[in-house]
């Protein structure tokens, strides 16, 4: 699993590739916590190259979403969700728990509103 973080106009973009499981999820948690500690409360997660997302990864995103919501206007959007991952979201009833967007551009527009 690898990730990169780049500041955009209205949010920070974290682009993740590979597996997010019990082994790698703590690294994503550290990255998200670090952004939030620095006061970056708009976070866009690009999931296009994520090959697998386990419940431990989902818990990391839920935790970040909770922390951002606690900051008032903070928000996290997941974008470019691979069909297999979204399919599991639907099966287990998580599709409406996260803010999801089709692509980076439309997600950025939602941060501007």
């Amino acid at each position: 699993m690898n990730f990169s973080i780049n500041p955009l106009s209205h949010c920070d973009l974290i682009k993740i590739s590979g597996r997010i499981d019990s082994y790698t999820a703590p690294k994503i948690q550290d990255a998200l916590d670090s952004l939030i500690r620095k006061g970056q409360y708009n976070i866009l997660v690009d999931m296009q190259d994520v090959s697998y997302l386990s419940s431990s990864g989902i818990l990391v995103f839920l935790d970040a979403q909770r922390k951002l919501k606690g900051q008032g206007n903070g928000k996290m959007i997941l974008t470019n969700l691979p069909p297999n991952i979204f399919s599991v979201f639907e099966i287990v009833g998580l599709e409406n728990v996260f803010n999801c967007c089709e692509d980076v551009q439309s997600a950025e527009e939602r941060f501007q509103k």
């Binding site: 499981d21 019990s22 697998y52 386990s54 419940s55 431990s56 069909p83 297999n84 991952i85 399919s87 599991v88 099966i91």
Partner: peptide, 19 residues
């Protein structure tokens, strides 16, 4: 592909639970 992903997820969750 969706079924394979579901099977992979179930096994991964089971093994993570064991650890």
């Amino acid at each position: 592909s969706k079924e394979v992903y579901a099977i992979q997820t179930a096994v991964d969750e089971a093994c993570a639970n064991i650890i």
